[in-house]
Every structure is written in C-alpha cells, then in structure tokens.
C-alpha cells in the first residue's frame, strides 16, 4: 500500500518538475500512438466504409477477418513486423528496426482492424433509406461515402478512442520492434516494464499513472467533441 502512495507521490513530482526524461518518454508515447492512430484511421475508415457499402463475393469472410483482427495480439504483430524489418528480412533495406517508425508501423497494424471493424458496424447501423435518399438527390459514390461518414461521426469517434486506447497501452509489439532504447524508442509502457524488472516499483507505478493520465486526457478531449451534440 505504501508502495502505491510512493508511486503516486513520485508521479506527481515527475509531472510537477517536468522531469526531462519522463517528459520525453511521454511525448514519444503520444507521438507514436497518435501517428499510428492517424494512419489506422485513414486506412480503417476508408476500407471499413467500402466494405460496409458494397456487396461482393466472400464479403462475409472479409468481415469475419476484420472482426478477428480487432483482437489481434500485439506480440504476434510485433514478431512479424520484427521479422519483416530484420536486416536480412524483406524490408531490411529500410533500416527501420528499433526505430520509432517501426513502432508506428506495428501499432498501426494493431489499430487498423479495430478502427475498420467499428467503422463497418457504424456504417451498417445507418438507416438503409438514407443511402437511397442521398443517391436519389444525385450524389456521386464518393459524395455518398463522405455524407455517410459525417452521419456516423459519433461512433467513428468511438473508433478513434478504441484504436488509440489499444495502441497507447500496448507493450508487446513496442518492445520488440522499438527495443526500448533510452531517449530514442522508450515509451511509457516499455519503460514501466523495465522499471518493474529493475525492482523500481515506485517508478513503475509513477509511469503507469502518467500513462493513465495521458489516456484520460486524450479521451476527455475526444469525448467532449463526441458529446457536444445531442445524439440523434
């Protein structure tokens, strides 16, 4: 119990004094997971919308695959991304292993199916007649997709939160492809694991609390945007 209080005190102190190392770690977490979420939004929303609006053979299988992907284990993603990025691997020429870029790639792979799955569900929730109405007014397919995306913006914000929450809290892939390199690819989750294994439990708790505060702050902003208007 005392240990937890120590951790809370330490977290408070680190934040108040804005400890440069911890601030760097926090900012990197935010940058890596933010960019990964952005990438996953671009791919996830576009593909999710298309799958939701079209009918093609094997669609059921594709939807099942996307839904399975929502539970993609981060360590498995980390393992495959590592093997791809090895010097001897197919993408070795990029020299990307053990860089923040590799972490963004792995996290984007984790977040994309989450965003895609929620987008898919959100789009299918929209009334069928809405589509007919929009098309009847002479909209092109792209305009249709855009209007429907706007209509589904509340659940889509939930997709952003789920995707971001999934990757900011993720440790398995980040430690494998990032390497937890001090001052370079160390993020809040990997630093927490390391401090715990070093026996610095107060520091580990402090980093964990900072992670919670960060996730809370980001979600608070997103929730405010989402709840600004009354639900239809």
């Amino acid at each position: 119990m005392e240990l937890i209080l120590d951790g809370v005190r330490k977290a408070f102190w680190l934040l108040v004094t804005s400890d440069p190392e911890v601030m760097g770690i926090t900012l990197l977490s935010l940058r890596v997971s933010g960019l990964a979420t952005l990438v996953s939004l671009i791919i996830g929303v576009s593909t999710g919308t298309l799958v939701a609006l079209t009918r093609f053979p094997g669609r059921g299988l594709v939807v099942s695959l996307i839904n399975t992907g929502m539970g993609l284990p981060p360590v498995v993603v980390g393992l495959f991304v590592t093997i791809l990025l090895w010097r001897s691997g197919p993408l070795g020429f990029l020299g990307m292993l053990y860089t923040p870029g590799a972490m963004i790639l792995a996290q984007a792979v984790i977040a994309t199916p989450i965003v895609m799955g929620i987008t898919l569900a959100a789009m299918q929730q929209l009334p069928k007649k809405l589509r007919l109405q929009i098309l009847a007014l002479g909209a092109t397919r792209l305009q249709l997709a855009w209007i429907l995306t706007k209509e589904a913006r509340l659940p889509l914000l939930a997709a952003v939160m789920a995707g971001f929450g999934g990757v900011i809290s993720e440790v398995g892939a980040s430690i494998m492809v990032g390497g937890n390199i001090k001052g370079y690819s160390r993020v809040l989750t990997t630093a927490t694991v390391m401090e715990a294994s070093r026996g610095n439990f107060d520091m580990a708790i402090a980093l964990g609390l900072i992670l919670l505060v960060l996730a809370f702050a980001v979600n608070l902003v997103l929730t405010r945007i989402q709840q600004k208007e009354r639900p239809r």
């Binding site: 990438v39 671009i42 590799a102």
Partner: peptide, 16 residues
Amino acid sequence: GLVVTAAFCFVAAAGA
C-alpha cells in the same frame, strides 16, 4: 492507404 502508411512511417523514422 498503404502508400500513406509507408509515407508516415518514413517521415516519422526520418524525423526521429
């Protein structure tokens, strides 16, 4: 989507 991902990763990697 793929191109954008790749571009993002390159920019991020290059920046870092």
